[in-house]
């Protein structure tokens, strides 16, 4: 499904600010995998997702989705097969446009945009139906400007937009990190529900070890631009935070700083 081969990303190469953000990363996702990706600040998680999404070019390696090499494809073209939710709630939606207008943009992902109406009446029913799943009451506020919504509402909406056209791969980058704990749990549960119901192949970055263990069928851990742990299925089901800390120590030869990954 997703095949990442020897991908390296270096920021500001050949300058004093050179930074090897990820180095020679190789991994595969199977169709239907729900993978949580965990790692300390600056370990390269966002960079990996951005390389897959084509936000910037990679320095080496290739990214292949369903047999199609997308390594050099423009970001907007890859969007056809990708759904994305970002850490910052502001990033995923157009603030000055209405809820339904944002959804309409998402529904047309991968289609040629022409001179027909940006939203049809028929779609509005679909949007209401989909918004109801969020249980946030947004189905009655189709015309409301997204800028007026709370962070949690915006993330839930972005999630819906990312999955409205079923993507081949869903990329979630700490999409609950900017929310208060209760809202974060709600959005996480919602993500889990949507992912399971649609059987979406998903790569979800999280800062929180418990969430990484609780959700998904596979866990990857990154450290200094490399994937250092890959725990799947049965093994993952039995995993505890303590195990994870011990295994991190074994592989990296370092103690995990308390503040580096949230334990609660």
């Amino acid at each position: 499904m997703l095949d990442v081969k020897k991908v390296t990303k270096i920021f500001n190469p050949r300058t004093v600010n050179e930074k090897i953000a990820i180095y020679n990363i190789t991994f595969k996702l199977q169709k239907g995998d729900f993978v949580t990706l965990i790692g300390g600040n600056g370990s390269g998680k966002s960079t990996l997702l951005n390389c897959i999404a084509g936000v910037y070019p990679v320095n080496a390696g290739s990214v292949i989705i369903d047999g199609m090499d997308i390594t050099n494809l423009a970001e907007y073209k890859r969007s056809v097969v990708l759904g994305r939710v970002f850490q910052d709630p502001i990033m995923g939606t157009a603030a000055n446009m209405g809820i339904e207008e944002n959804l309409a943009l998402a529904l047309r992902r991968g289609q040629r945009r022409g001179l027909s109406w940006g939203i049809s009446n028929k779609e509005r029913e679909l949007y209401k139906e989909q918004l109801r799943i969020l249980s946030l009451g947004l189905e009655n506020r189709l015309g409301t400007k997204v800028g007026l919504l709370s962070g949690g509402q915006r993330q839930a909406l972005t999630l819906l937009m990312a999955t409205l056209k079923k993507p081949k791969l869903l990329l979630l980058d700490e999409h609950t990190a900017a929310l208060d704990p209760k809202t974060a749990q709600n959005v996480l549960r919602l993500s889990d529900k949507i992912i399971k119901e649609n059987n979406l192949t998903t790569l979800m970055v999280t800062h929180n070890m418990r969430d990484a263990i609780k959700y998904g069928n596979r866990l990857l851990m990154m450290h200094e631009g490399q994937i250092i742990l890959d725990i799947q299925d049965d093994e993952k089901r039995k995993l505890t935070v303590e195990d994870l800390l011990i295994r991190f120590g074994d592989v990296s030869g370092e103690e995990l700083a308390d503040n580096e990954m949230l334990l609660s």
């Binding site: 990033m91 995923g92 943009l105 047309r108 992902r109 991968g110 940006g118 939203i119």
Partner: peptide, 20 residues
């Protein structure tokens, strides 16, 4: 559709690209 795409671009180009 095109007009909405232009508005989205001015509003949030990152999001616009993510929507293709």
């Amino acid at each position: 559709e095109i007009g909405c795409a232009i508005r989205a671009t001015g509003d949030n180009p990152q999001m616009a690209r993510a929507q293709g």
